[in-house]
Every structure is written in structure tokens, then in C-alpha cells.
């Protein structure tokens, strides 16, 4: 019986996502023009739904202090209050408002994940493009180092490094960015390798262009589409990793409001049949799903509409 209800629930969720995506496509098409507009018109419903979700998250993160009923760390009542007046989603293990914590979580968790991804990307992409453009021993040395670092699973490596440097937010950002930049390096190098064999790169080399100009003017513009998609994928990965570490108690720590640690702090409620702790977990999942749908669409477009 429960099984049936869950199936019905899932179907309803999927259907409402499709409907929302369909509805959101109208403003998307109306507000864009030219090339972008044509792309939006052809956007799959799930991608359009994804864009809607990302937009909402961004708005919530930016407007957190306005939207939240209380301050981020304010204790407003007894612990584990049920959903009700004055505390819509109840209170957490210290009696703070769950809704407020969720809203601030958008700012903290997403913000930290974004910063980490940006850092990983600037290191990894630059080195990767450089290695492919220069070739020779620079490429060999960098690739060997990256190969060795990638031979250790990401989560295990980050746990190892966090043991050494201690578990703080800044350490976590640096560790994850460093580990993730190896993956970005691998991808941007292989994308750039496909580009540097082109005749126009040979022509630019023969013209006597400098390495910097070769990378920024000739290679980068052509590597942009896969790199942007990769940024989305990497963001998902980093975001999940940070959430997992926080959930394990090794990442973002209280009193900072963060979705991963909120699940951990309130997990006991689950055994009493209260699904409140699933809300922050769902918030994580929803954003990752949204980004993934958009990235999937972009990758599909970039691959030249093969199927």
C-alpha cells in the first residue's frame, strides 16, 4: 500500500516538474532574443524546470535576510517542535527555526560550493589548457602528477587531507578545490588536445602567436561549451561532496546553517517518523537535479544533436 502511494507521489512530482517547466518556458522565450531564444524554445521541459529551480535558489540565497522569519542562529523555542504557527517547519535540535535555517542554508551551502568550484576551475582549466598547448615535458609531468593524485578516490583523499589539516571550512574548501582541480585538468586538457590538432592552431603557431594569445584567443573560445557544461557537473560533485562531509560532521559546522549538517543534527527525528530532516537533504537533491538537467541539455546541444 505504502509502495503504491509512493509511486503515485513520485509520478505527481515528475508531472508537476514537467508542467512547471512548460510554464516557465514562456517567460524564458519572451525574455531572450536571437540565438538564445531559439535555444530556449527548443529546451526540453526538464531543462526549463531546472533553470526555474536554479533561479529560485539564487533568489533565496540573495534575499535570505529578507525572506527568513528569524535570524540565522536565533533560538526561538523548545527543541524539535512540530510544524506549526510561528515556526512553519518546526524547530531543530537547539530550538532554532527550521525554515530560517533552510533559507540561510541556501546562502551558505551553495555559496561555499560555488566558491570551491570556481577555485578548482581556475586552477584546473588553466593548467589543463596550458599543458595541452605547450605539450612536451610540461604536459607529461603535469599529467603524471594528476594521474597519481587521481589514483586515490576523491572522498578518501579529502578525508585523509582533512585529518592532517583539521576540519575547518577554509581547509575543506582548499582540499576539495585541490582534489577537484585534478578532474578539471583532465577534462580541459583532453578538450584542448582535440583543438590543438586543428589546422587553425597550427596556422596560429606558424604565425608566431604567443602562448598566452594562443590559449586565450584560439583555444579557449572553442573549449568554452564543454567547459561550461563541466562547470555544472563539477558544481554538482563539489556540492554533494561538501554536503556529505558536513553530514559526516567533517565539513561545515554549526552554528553556521548548512543543509548537510542540518540532516545530521536532526537525523534522530527520522526514527520517529518525522520527515523534517529530509527537507534539507531534499533541498540539496533538488538543486543538483536542476543543474544536472540543464547541463545534460547543454551537453546534448554541444554534441551536435546526435540523437
Amino acid at each position: 500500500m505504502t509502495f503504491l502511494w509512493i509511486l503515485v507521489g513520485l509520478a505527481c512530482l515528475g508531472l508537476s516538474a514537467v508542467v512547471l517547466g512548460w510554464l516557465f518556458r514562456f517567460p524564458l522565450v519572451a525574455l531572450t532574443r536571437g540565438e538564445l531564444r531559439r535555444a530556449m524554445r527548443g529546451a526540453p521541459l526538464m531543462a526549463s524546470f531546472g533553470m526555474l529551480v536554479i533561479l529560485i535558489y539564487a533568489a533565496v540565497a540573495l534575499l535570505a535576510p529578507v525572506l527568513a522569519p528569524y535570524a540565522e542562529r536565533e533560538v526561538i523555542g523548545a527543541q524539535y517542535l512540530p510544524w506549526g504557527e510561528g515556526h512553519l517547519l518546526g524547530t531543530d535540535n537547539l530550538g532554532r527555526d527550521m525554515l530560517t535555517r533552510l533559507i540561510y542554508g541556501a546562502r551558505n551551502t551553495v555559496g561555499i560550493a560555488l566558491a570551491t568550484t570556481a577555485l578548482a576551475f581556475s586552477i584546473g582549466a588553466l593548467l589543463g589548457l596550458w599543458a595541452a598547448a605547450v605539450g612536451g615535458w610540461v604536459d607529461t609531468v603535469l599529467s603524471r602528477i594528476v594521474d597519481a593524485l587521481m589514483a586515490i578516490p576523491a572522498l578518501i583523499f579529502s578525508l585523509l587531507l582533512l585529518t592532517i589539516f583539521g576540519t575547518s571550512i577554509i581547509n575543506m574548501i582548499l582540499v576539495i578545490a585541490a582534489i577537484d582541480s585534478t578532474r578539471v585538468f583532465r577534462l580541459s586538457r583532453s578538450v584542448a588536445q582535440g583543438i590543438v590538432v586543428m589546422d587553425y592552431i597550427e596556422a596560429a603557431r606558424l604565425r608566431g602567436e604567443t602562448m598566452w594569445r594562443l590559449i586565450t584567443r584560439e583555444i579557449l573560445p572553442n573549449a568554452m561549451a564543454p567547459l561550461v557544461a563541466e562547470f555544472g557537473l563539477r558544481f554538482c560533485f563539489v556540492f554533494l561532496m561538501i554536503s556529505s562531509l558536513s553530514f559526516l560532521g567533517l565539513g561545515i559546522k554549526p552554528p553556521t546553517a548548512d543543509w548537510g549538517s542540518m540532516v545530521r543534527e536532526n537525523a534522530t527525528l527520522i526514527s520517529y517518523g518525522d520527515i523534517t530532516p529530509l527537507l534539507p537533504a531534499g533541498a540539496i537533491a533538488l538543486l543538483t537535479v536542476a543543474v544536472n538537467f540543464v547541463v545534460d541539455w547543454q551537453l546534448h546541444r554541444a554534441s551536435g544533436l546526435k540523437d
Partner: peptide, 8 residues
């Protein structure tokens, strides 16, 4: 096709 940078 391969000798002209498609983005320029």
C-alpha cells in the same frame, strides 16, 4: 573547416 577558427 579545420583551418579557420570557428569562433572568430
Amino acid at each position: 573547416d579545420t583551418s579557420l577558427n570557428p569562433k572568430l
